[in-house]
């Protein structure tokens, strides 16, 4: 059975200032793919292209088989979680998450319940009226997950989502993410520079260096990959 790939970057080129980028890859649905590589390599640019914050100079981007190359971020079938500032600081959690369901915040009773359920699912039951400023960093990221949950988009993009958290918290958040993935079976792209996170979460790995994909394949192969200097340096703890 041949399913439609979740993400397809078809000979995508982009020039930002002095940096050139070239991406060509296909990601299967339902997988967790770690986008990794040295800093400045183009991990975030890859994500920005998928999310629609950058428009390619050439090539096509297909999500769920649909060409979205020129479309607005809001029209793409995806949810986003950044490293920080995932919530509107002046709005309470209910509103923040409710906006994920309807950008005009016109919510039915069922949808309101859905928001509360999502909060409960990420361990923030009863936090509806709390403002982001009163939460810890981990709680804020949980709330961001809750919003991704209610949005029910087939694709979830995460940009270094745990980088600002301490190691113990990172572990529990990774567990939460894995559990949510078990429930929803969505496709996840996670940008990370942490090899432990790659080990813990990924099915597949895309390794980017100097604006292009150096490696794309199963995690198992990536972790034992010794042919390339850049990758070995990254995988082996120094």
């Amino acid at each position: 059975m041949k399913t439609t790939p979740a993400v397809q970057l078809d000979t995508v080129t982009l020039k930002l200032g002095q940096a050139d980028f070239f991406f060509d890859c296909t990601l299967a649905a339902g997988q967790v793919t770690a986008i990794t590589g040295p800093s400045g390599s183009g991990k975030s640019t890859f994500l920005n292209l998928v999310a629609g914050f950058e428009t390619p100079d050439g090539g096509r981007i297909l999500l769920e088989g649909r060409d979205v190359t020129g479309s607005h971020p809001g029209e793409r079938p995806l949810s986003l979680v950044f490293q920080d500032n995932n919530l509107f600081a002046h709005l309470d959690l209910f509103t923040n998450i409710g906006l994920g369901l309807d950008p005009g915040l016109k919510l039915s009773a069922a949808e309101r319940q859905e928001v509360s359920d999502a909060l409960a699912r990420v361990g923030l039951a009863g936090y509806e009226k709390r403002k982001p400023g009163t939460l810890s960093g981990g709680e804020r990221q949980r709330a961001a997950f809750a919003r991704a949950l209610v949005r029910k988009r087939p694709l979830l993009l995460l940009d270094e989502p745990f980088a600002a958290l301490d190691p113990a918290l990172r572990l529990s958040m990774a567990d939460l993410l894995a559990a949510l993935h078990q429930e929803t079976h969505n496709t996840i792209l996670i940008v990370t520079h942490d090899i432990e996170e790659v080990r813990r979460l990924a099915d597949e790995v895309i390794f980017i260096d100097a604006g292009t994909i150096l490696f794309h394949g199963e995690k198992r192969i990536f972790l034992t990959h010794r042919d390339d200097d850049a990758i070995s340096k990254f995988v082996l703890p120094s």
């Binding site: 629609g52 809001g74 029209e75 950044f82 995932n86 509103t95 906006l99 950008p103 005009g104 915040l105």
Partner: peptide, 27 residues
């Protein structure tokens, strides 16, 4: 406002009015 704000509101598909209501007006 942090730049993520604008990415987030774009990604959530907020209309001009919603952007005003939830992002710009509070700022």
């Amino acid at each position: 406002l942090p730049p993520e704000t604008w990415r987030l509101s774009a990604s959530l598909g907020l209309s001009s009015w919603s952007t005003f209501r939830f992002v710009e007006r509070p700022a």
